[in-house]
Amino acid sequence: MADEKKQNPLEKIANSQVWKSIFRTGIPVTRRQRMMAILNNVFLHLHPVRLPKHAVKIKYTWCMGGLSFFLFLVLTISGILLMFYYRPTVEYAYTDIIDLTEQVPLGVMREIHRWGAHAMVIAVWLHMFRVFMTGSYKPPREFNWSVGVLLMVITMFLSFTGYLLPWDQLAIWAVTVGTNMARAHPFIGHEGPGASLLAIGDINLVHAGSDIRFALLGGRFVGEATLLRFYVLHCIGVPFIAMILMAVHFWRVRKDGGISGPL
């Protein structure tokens, strides 16, 4: 055919059998193809096919929810790369962190991970602020707001568990200050109100070696066991919960009336 000769190399690729087997719609030119481009893609079909005009404006959404999710992905990828080099032991942790900058190629991964984590905390807060200010928590989106609050808490806890891993002065003292709160937990912290009530005769069930702080730290102070605990929580435990809640969160955005806007 005469048309085929006019194709530039990019179009040729896009019309090849390999490309078409992956992206079945071809180049999204027609309206139908553009709709199918969203529907036929497992990642893109998180989105609806069409959106109200206001919803794609940066001024309306500030892109903060999307950025939070994007930062989660950035942190996952940079975190996996960091895990290749980092060993969560008191002996090696600090020197591994130094090596990450000085010895490892692309030694900027820790910086990306660290600053990205701070940015994610801010992005999640601002996302919540935006959702409040547009009244997008109101029915039918009540439940999704609550899931979002949990995700915000989890984001901060993720950041907090990661804080310990460099094993420098900043890390252990910030975590010491933070986890010291746990000892004052009512009933289950050994310096919390009501803890002395949980006793059998003279034997206290809740003491410095059995309370919630001990469970969090794996000891009576921030040490080797804490480092391992926080490492496991940071890399596996908390992201696992976060991913489940994120799946619920995104699913419910679609199910509860789509992207926020007047219903």
């Binding site: 553009r34 989105h47 109200p52 206001h54 794609v56």
Partner: peptide
């Protein structure tokens, strides 16, 4: 932000490109 059902934009390309640029 009033939602006009007749006046909607397609996610491809109007949203995915904004997301990509962001």
């Amino acid at each position: 932000e009033q939602n006009d059902p007749k006046d909607k934009v397609l996610v491809w390309p109007d949203l995915v490109y904004i997301e990509l640029i962001c």
